[in-house]
């Protein structure tokens, strides 16, 4: 094995990998459907630095997956359209690039792990083929070279007997092993930013922990910026550096992870944390957030969370949408009454 092969696959930390790798500013995505215009993402702003983990938290339908797909440029279009904002990778706006330039960024610089590996892997090709394809199409390698790299990748994500298993099809792997294949596929070209869209929801709890620690370890080794999209508060606490909480297509709170747990400053974040089952409250009724998230075709005026919020007042029901108030160092909340929320405990 040559030195360069080792470097590429082991992913030795690149010294140039510092500072913000991906910056998303005021991103807007809408879906033009027969039922009307759905505002899936309404001005989302976040950034992720090399070697950092940003968790994007929110319930189903809040726009987290759509944000990820918009960043990757794989929105189903129509009906989905990016209508505003910027997505900058290392300063270059991806939205201004040609389709061909964008394609070169995918997998090379920004890669993505999907939720359900069984449906996200092509059922009729071997995992070896699907991994080798990346090297063949992006690096111009031969089939044999690509297959060799595929074996190395499966080794990297600790799939036993990698040499034999490259010849297997996705359905021949267990759920956890399939998700490892997904991770291997995302890491193949050594991207600088990795977007993981609920990477562990389809797995059982013990396997979840293994996958998360593998992901965290590979991220540290390679100094990747990791965007972890999830609705699982438990997963976030362990691995994230910063958290962005999303509601109805907007960021409602952004803060370092310990800050969020210690002093949540948005009523939605607070309610989310209260609804996590806790051992010391065993036997008591679980706390829930009343009501449903708004339909994206009819988001309420003012603060989108107001119909479900126990702090809501007249001001919250009127436009404009509350801006992100700086509530502490690196901590922002989009609530007019954040001081009240913070004091309340």
């Amino acid at each position: 094995m040559t030195a360069d092969v080792t470097l590429d696959v082991e992913g030795v930390a690149d010294p140039s990998r510092t500072g913000p790798a991906l910056e998303v500013t005021d991103l807007q995505v809408e879906f033009r459907t027969r039922a009307g215009l759905a505002h899936a993402v309404n001005g989302v702003t976040f950034h992720v630095d090399a070697g950092e983990t940003l968790a994007i938290l929110g319930e189903s339908g809040c726009g987290k997956s759509v944000t990820a797909q918009a960043v990757m440029g794989i929105l189903d279009s129509p009906p989905g359209f990016v209508t505003g904002g910027q997505i900058r990778y290392r300063g270059k706006d991806l939205l201004k690039m040609s389709e061909q330039q964008r394609r070169a960024v995918r997998a090379n610089q920004i890669a993505m792990i999907f939720q359900d590996a069984l449906s996200a892997l092509n059922p009729v090709f071997t995992v070896g083929f699907q991994l080798a394809e990346l090297f063949r199409k992006h690096r111009g390698m031969s089939r044999a070279e690509g297959r060799k790299r595929a074996v190395e990748l499966l080794d990297l994500v600790r799939i036993p007997a990698a040499r034999q298993r490259v010849r297997d099809f996705p359905h021949q792997f267990s759920g956890g092993m399939r998700q490892r294949v997904m991770i291997a596929m995302a890491l193949a070209l050594d991207p600088e930013v990795l977007i993981a869209d609920e990477p562990t929801t389809a797995l059982d709890v013990t396997v979840q922990a293994q996958i998360m620690s593998l992901l965290a370890e590979l991220q540290r080794e390679r100094q990747m910026g990791l965007i972890l999209i999830t609705h699982d508060m438990g997963v976030v606490a362990d691995v994230a550096d910063r958290i962005s909480v999303m509601y109805a297509g907007r960021m409602v709170e952004q803060a370092p992870v310990h800050e969020v747990y210690a002093r949540p400053s948005h009523p939605y974040t607070k309610a989310l944390l209260e609804s996590v089952p806790r051992l010391d409250q065993k036997g008591r009724q679980l706390s829930v957030i009343q009501g449903l998230p708004p339909t994206l075709t009819a988001i309420p005026p003012g603060c989108a969370f107001n119909p479900r919020c126990r702090y809501a007042r007249e001001e919250c029901r009127q436009p404009p949408v509350p801006p992100l108030y700086e509530v502490a160092d690196r901590h922002a909340s989009a609530c007019h009454f954040w001081q009240e929320v913070r004091q309340d405990d």
Partner: peptide, 23 residues
């Protein structure tokens, strides 16, 4: 989903349709 994956891999749309979808 696997077609979306193929696109996320940065493959040309000819290959996404001709290989991944068509098969």
């Amino acid at each position: 989903d696997y077609v979306r994956t193929a696109r996320a891999k940065g493959l040309a749309s000819n290959r996404v349709v001709g290989v991944h979808t068509l098969r």
